[in-house]
Design a protein around this nucleic acid. Sequence first.
DNA 1: CGAGCAACCTGCATGC
DNA 2: TGCATGCAGGTTGCTC
Length: 271
Amino acid sequence: MPELPEVETSRRGIEPHLCNQKITAIIVRNRQLRWPISVRLQKEATASTINAVRRRAKYLLIDTSQGCIIIHLGMSGSLRMIDNKVPAEKHDHVDIVLSSGQALRLRDPRRFGAVFWTKNDPLKHLRLKDLGKEPLEDALTAEWLYGQSRNRKRAIKSFIMDSKIVVGVGNIYACESLFLAGIHPNKPAGKLSMQRWEKLTHAIKDVLSKAIKQGGTTLKDFTRSDGQPGYFARQLTVYGREGKPCKKCGETLKKITQGQRSTFYCSQCQK
DNA sequence: CGAGCAACCTGCATGC
DNA sequence: TGCATGCAGGTTGCTC
Protein backbone atom coordinates (compact mmCIF):
# COMPACT_ATOMS: atom_id res chain seq x y z
CA MET A 1 0.00 0.00 0.00
CA PRO A 2 2.76 2.28 -0.90
CA GLU A 3 2.84 5.99 -1.19
CA LEU A 4 5.94 7.84 -2.27
CA PRO A 5 7.82 7.49 1.04
CA GLU A 6 7.39 3.72 0.98
CA VAL A 7 8.59 3.55 -2.60
CA GLU A 8 11.63 5.67 -1.80
CA THR A 9 12.31 3.58 1.29
CA SER A 10 12.12 0.45 -0.84
CA ARG A 11 14.48 2.00 -3.37
CA ARG A 12 17.05 2.74 -0.71
CA GLY A 13 16.65 -0.69 0.79
CA ILE A 14 17.18 -2.66 -2.41
CA GLU A 15 19.70 -0.41 -4.18
CA PRO A 16 22.86 -1.71 -2.44
CA HIS A 17 21.83 -5.31 -3.12
CA LEU A 18 21.15 -4.68 -6.81
CA CYS A 19 23.87 -2.38 -8.08
CA ASN A 20 26.58 -4.06 -10.15
CA GLN A 21 24.77 -7.39 -9.97
CA LYS A 22 24.17 -9.51 -13.01
CA ILE A 23 20.60 -10.72 -13.55
CA THR A 24 20.87 -14.49 -13.92
CA ALA A 25 17.15 -15.16 -14.33
CA ILE A 26 13.76 -13.55 -14.11
CA ILE A 27 10.99 -15.76 -12.82
CA VAL A 28 7.45 -14.65 -13.61
CA ARG A 29 4.79 -16.73 -11.87
CA ASN A 30 1.87 -14.52 -12.82
CA ARG A 31 2.04 -11.99 -15.64
CA GLN A 32 -1.43 -10.61 -15.01
CA LEU A 33 -0.77 -7.44 -13.07
CA ARG A 34 -2.37 -4.06 -13.88
CA TRP A 35 -0.84 -4.57 -17.30
CA PRO A 36 0.46 -7.97 -18.39
CA ILE A 37 4.21 -8.38 -17.98
CA SER A 38 5.89 -8.50 -21.38
CA VAL A 39 7.69 -11.72 -22.34
CA ARG A 40 10.50 -9.50 -23.59
CA LEU A 41 11.38 -8.71 -19.99
CA GLN A 42 12.79 -12.17 -19.40
CA LYS A 43 14.32 -12.51 -22.85
CA GLU A 44 16.07 -9.18 -22.92
CA ALA A 45 16.89 -8.38 -19.29
CA THR A 46 18.37 -11.76 -18.38
CA ALA A 47 22.19 -11.62 -18.36
CA SER A 48 22.17 -7.83 -18.15
CA THR A 49 23.96 -5.95 -15.38
CA ILE A 50 22.24 -3.50 -13.04
CA ASN A 51 23.72 -0.02 -13.06
CA ALA A 52 21.39 1.99 -10.86
CA VAL A 53 18.05 2.05 -9.05
CA ARG A 54 16.16 5.30 -9.46
CA ARG A 55 12.68 6.53 -8.65
CA ARG A 56 10.29 8.72 -10.62
CA ALA A 57 6.99 9.42 -8.86
CA LYS A 58 5.95 6.02 -7.46
CA TYR A 59 7.79 4.12 -10.17
CA LEU A 60 11.08 2.35 -9.44
CA LEU A 61 13.52 2.32 -12.33
CA ILE A 62 16.09 -0.45 -12.42
CA ASP A 63 18.64 0.57 -15.04
CA THR A 64 20.48 -2.30 -16.63
CA SER A 65 23.04 -2.63 -19.40
CA GLN A 66 20.25 -3.76 -21.75
CA GLY A 67 17.35 -1.51 -20.77
CA CYS A 68 15.22 -0.50 -17.82
CA ILE A 69 12.86 -2.47 -15.59
CA ILE A 70 10.07 -0.21 -14.36
CA ILE A 71 8.14 -1.34 -11.29
CA HIS A 72 5.00 0.15 -9.76
CA LEU A 73 3.71 -1.30 -6.48
CA GLY A 74 0.07 -0.32 -6.92
CA MET A 75 -1.99 -0.62 -3.76
CA SER A 76 -0.59 -3.76 -2.22
CA GLY A 77 2.82 -4.39 -3.74
CA SER A 78 6.00 -4.86 -1.75
CA LEU A 79 9.60 -5.71 -2.54
CA ARG A 80 12.16 -7.60 -0.56
CA MET A 81 15.51 -9.19 -1.00
CA ILE A 82 15.50 -12.92 -0.41
CA ASP A 83 17.90 -15.80 -0.64
CA ASN A 84 16.94 -17.34 -3.97
CA LYS A 85 16.22 -20.70 -2.33
CA VAL A 86 13.36 -19.30 -0.26
CA PRO A 87 10.15 -20.82 -1.64
CA ALA A 88 7.64 -18.45 -3.16
CA GLU A 89 4.38 -17.85 -1.36
CA LYS A 90 0.92 -17.19 -2.67
CA HIS A 91 1.26 -13.68 -4.11
CA ASP A 92 4.94 -13.69 -5.03
CA HIS A 93 4.62 -12.95 -8.74
CA VAL A 94 8.13 -12.01 -9.88
CA ASP A 95 11.71 -12.81 -8.83
CA ILE A 96 14.69 -11.03 -10.33
CA VAL A 97 17.48 -13.46 -9.56
CA LEU A 98 20.99 -12.06 -9.13
CA SER A 99 24.50 -13.41 -9.43
CA SER A 100 24.92 -12.87 -5.68
CA GLY A 101 22.48 -15.70 -4.98
CA GLN A 102 19.87 -13.25 -3.77
CA ALA A 103 16.73 -12.24 -5.59
CA LEU A 104 14.46 -9.22 -5.63
CA ARG A 105 10.97 -10.57 -4.99
CA LEU A 106 7.75 -8.74 -5.86
CA ARG A 107 4.68 -9.63 -3.86
CA ASP A 108 1.36 -8.03 -4.79
CA PRO A 109 -1.91 -9.60 -3.57
CA ARG A 110 -4.23 -7.23 -5.40
CA ARG A 111 -2.14 -7.12 -8.57
CA PHE A 112 -2.69 -3.42 -9.15
CA GLY A 113 1.04 -3.05 -9.61
CA ALA A 114 2.97 -3.21 -12.86
CA VAL A 115 6.32 -4.29 -14.28
CA PHE A 116 7.44 -2.78 -17.58
CA TRP A 117 10.55 -3.34 -19.67
CA THR A 118 11.90 -0.71 -22.01
CA LYS A 119 15.06 -0.29 -24.05
CA ASN A 120 14.38 3.42 -24.41
CA ASP A 121 14.56 6.27 -21.94
CA PRO A 122 12.17 5.15 -19.17
CA LEU A 123 11.13 8.74 -18.54
CA LYS A 124 9.63 8.73 -22.04
CA HIS A 125 7.56 5.63 -21.30
CA LEU A 126 3.83 6.09 -21.92
CA ARG A 127 3.10 5.84 -18.18
CA LEU A 128 5.82 8.26 -17.11
CA LYS A 129 6.04 10.89 -19.80
CA ASP A 130 3.22 13.12 -18.57
CA LEU A 131 4.02 13.00 -14.86
CA GLY A 132 4.19 16.26 -12.95
CA LYS A 133 6.84 17.64 -10.64
CA GLU A 134 8.66 15.68 -7.96
CA PRO A 135 7.46 17.06 -4.62
CA LEU A 136 10.86 16.89 -2.94
CA GLU A 137 12.76 18.63 -5.70
CA ASP A 138 13.39 22.36 -5.62
CA ALA A 139 11.53 22.75 -8.91
CA LEU A 140 8.28 22.30 -7.02
CA THR A 141 7.60 25.71 -5.55
CA ALA A 142 4.59 27.51 -4.11
CA GLU A 143 4.84 30.04 -6.93
CA TRP A 144 4.56 27.33 -9.56
CA LEU A 145 1.61 25.62 -7.84
CA TYR A 146 -0.09 28.96 -7.38
CA GLY A 147 0.26 29.62 -11.09
CA GLN A 148 -1.01 26.18 -12.06
CA SER A 149 -4.04 26.49 -9.81
CA ARG A 150 -5.35 29.83 -11.10
CA ASN A 151 -8.92 29.56 -12.39
CA ARG A 152 -9.09 25.92 -11.31
CA LYS A 153 -12.27 25.08 -9.46
CA ARG A 154 -11.25 21.59 -8.37
CA ALA A 155 -11.11 20.78 -4.70
CA ILE A 156 -7.60 21.39 -3.39
CA LYS A 157 -7.23 17.78 -2.25
CA SER A 158 -7.98 16.41 -5.69
CA PHE A 159 -5.66 19.04 -7.19
CA ILE A 160 -2.63 18.06 -5.12
CA MET A 161 -3.32 14.38 -5.82
CA ASP A 162 -3.28 14.99 -9.58
CA SER A 163 -0.11 13.33 -10.83
CA LYS A 164 0.00 15.58 -13.88
CA ILE A 165 0.59 18.46 -11.47
CA VAL A 166 2.64 16.95 -8.68
CA VAL A 167 3.47 13.28 -8.17
CA GLY A 168 3.62 11.14 -5.08
CA VAL A 169 0.94 12.77 -2.95
CA GLY A 170 -1.32 9.83 -2.15
CA ASN A 171 -4.48 9.78 -0.10
CA ILE A 172 -2.82 9.60 3.31
CA TYR A 173 -0.29 12.36 2.74
CA ALA A 174 -2.80 14.59 0.97
CA CYS A 175 -4.98 14.49 4.09
CA GLU A 176 -2.01 14.99 6.40
CA SER A 177 -0.56 17.88 4.38
CA LEU A 178 -3.86 19.74 4.25
CA PHE A 179 -4.26 19.39 7.99
CA LEU A 180 -0.75 20.66 8.60
CA ALA A 181 -1.41 23.66 6.36
CA GLY A 182 -4.84 24.33 7.91
CA ILE A 183 -6.66 24.08 4.58
CA HIS A 184 -10.12 22.56 4.09
CA PRO A 185 -9.92 19.67 1.58
CA ASN A 186 -12.90 21.02 -0.37
CA LYS A 187 -11.44 24.48 -0.91
CA PRO A 188 -11.26 25.29 -4.63
CA ALA A 189 -7.61 25.16 -5.70
CA GLY A 190 -7.87 28.41 -7.62
CA LYS A 191 -8.95 30.32 -4.54
CA LEU A 192 -5.87 29.61 -2.44
CA SER A 193 -3.78 32.69 -1.79
CA MET A 194 -0.05 32.71 -2.45
CA GLN A 195 0.56 32.69 1.27
CA ARG A 196 -1.55 29.57 1.77
CA TRP A 197 0.16 27.86 -1.16
CA GLU A 198 3.45 28.50 0.59
CA LYS A 199 2.15 26.82 3.70
CA LEU A 200 0.77 23.88 1.77
CA THR A 201 3.88 23.38 -0.36
CA HIS A 202 5.97 23.38 2.78
CA ALA A 203 3.58 20.94 4.45
CA ILE A 204 3.74 18.49 1.52
CA LYS A 205 7.53 18.50 1.46
CA ASP A 206 7.69 18.25 5.22
CA VAL A 207 5.24 15.35 5.57
CA LEU A 208 6.84 13.33 2.77
CA SER A 209 10.44 13.85 3.83
CA LYS A 210 9.67 13.05 7.45
CA ALA A 211 7.95 9.83 6.41
CA ILE A 212 10.98 8.86 4.33
CA LYS A 213 13.28 9.61 7.23
CA GLN A 214 11.15 7.45 9.49
CA GLY A 215 11.10 4.64 6.96
CA GLY A 216 14.84 4.78 6.74
CA THR A 217 15.28 4.29 10.46
CA THR A 218 12.59 1.67 10.91
CA LEU A 219 13.72 -0.34 7.94
CA LYS A 220 17.06 -1.74 8.95
CA ASP A 221 17.39 -4.94 7.00
CA PHE A 222 15.79 -5.45 3.63
CA THR A 223 17.03 -8.99 3.26
CA ARG A 224 15.21 -10.66 6.08
CA SER A 225 12.34 -12.86 5.12
CA ASP A 226 10.32 -11.97 8.18
CA GLY A 227 8.93 -8.55 8.89
CA GLN A 228 7.40 -6.31 6.29
CA PRO A 229 10.02 -4.37 4.39
CA GLY A 230 8.61 -1.28 2.82
CA TYR A 231 6.12 -0.66 5.55
CA PHE A 232 6.67 1.31 8.70
CA ALA A 233 4.71 2.82 11.53
CA ARG A 234 3.31 6.18 10.59
CA GLN A 235 2.33 8.91 12.97
CA LEU A 236 -0.89 10.15 11.49
CA THR A 237 -2.79 13.17 12.72
CA VAL A 238 -6.02 12.88 10.75
CA TYR A 239 -5.94 9.91 8.36
CA GLY A 240 -8.11 7.07 9.63
CA ARG A 241 -9.03 8.97 12.78
CA GLU A 242 -12.62 10.01 12.09
CA GLY A 243 -14.69 10.36 15.24
CA LYS A 244 -11.55 10.83 17.32
CA PRO A 245 -10.42 14.14 18.78
CA CYS A 246 -8.18 16.45 16.77
CA LYS A 247 -4.70 16.35 18.29
CA LYS A 248 -4.50 20.12 17.99
CA CYS A 249 -7.90 21.44 19.10
CA GLY A 250 -9.89 18.45 20.37
CA GLU A 251 -12.68 18.80 17.81
CA THR A 252 -14.12 15.52 16.53
CA LEU A 253 -12.46 14.68 13.22
CA LYS A 254 -14.68 14.25 10.17
CA LYS A 255 -14.62 11.90 7.22
CA ILE A 256 -16.01 12.78 3.81
CA THR A 257 -15.74 11.24 0.35
CA GLN A 258 -14.04 13.07 -2.48
CA GLY A 259 -13.60 11.40 -5.85
CA GLN A 260 -14.37 7.97 -4.36
CA ARG A 261 -11.61 8.39 -1.78
CA SER A 262 -11.99 8.99 1.93
CA THR A 263 -10.86 12.34 3.22
CA PHE A 264 -10.20 12.99 6.91
CA TYR A 265 -10.03 16.50 8.32
CA CYS A 266 -10.70 18.81 11.24
CA SER A 267 -13.48 21.31 10.63
CA GLN A 268 -12.01 23.66 13.23
CA CYS A 269 -8.38 23.66 12.13
CA GLN A 270 -9.00 23.50 8.38
CA LYS A 271 -10.85 26.32 6.62
C1' DC B 1 -12.16 21.54 -17.41
C1' DG B 2 -13.99 18.65 -13.93
C1' DA B 3 -17.14 15.63 -11.49
C1' DG B 4 -18.66 11.03 -11.16
C1' DC B 5 -18.18 6.45 -11.91
C1' DA B 6 -16.51 1.72 -13.18
C1' DA B 7 -12.73 -1.05 -13.60
C1' DC B 8 -8.56 -3.88 -12.34
C1' DC B 9 -8.04 -7.76 -7.63
C1' DT B 10 -7.56 -9.79 -2.96
C1' DG B 11 -7.70 -9.54 2.04
C1' DC B 12 -9.62 -8.11 6.14
C1' DA B 13 -12.97 -6.37 9.59
C1' DT B 14 -17.70 -6.29 10.72
C1' DG B 15 -22.30 -7.72 11.34
C1' DC B 16 -25.88 -11.16 11.05
C1' DT C 1 -18.76 -21.36 11.35
C1' DG C 2 -20.39 -19.34 7.23
C1' DC C 3 -21.86 -15.68 4.35
C1' DA C 4 -22.70 -10.89 2.69
C1' DT C 5 -21.06 -6.31 2.81
C1' DG C 6 -17.99 -2.63 2.70
C1' DC C 7 -13.57 -0.92 2.90
C1' DA C 8 -8.43 -0.40 1.58
C1' DG C 9 -2.32 3.34 0.78
C1' DG C 10 -3.32 3.64 -6.99
C1' DT C 11 -4.33 4.70 -11.51
C1' DT C 12 -6.76 4.68 -16.07
C1' DG C 13 -10.34 5.81 -18.87
C1' DC C 14 -15.03 6.59 -19.88
C1' DT C 15 -19.47 9.59 -19.84
C1' DC C 16 -21.85 13.70 -18.99
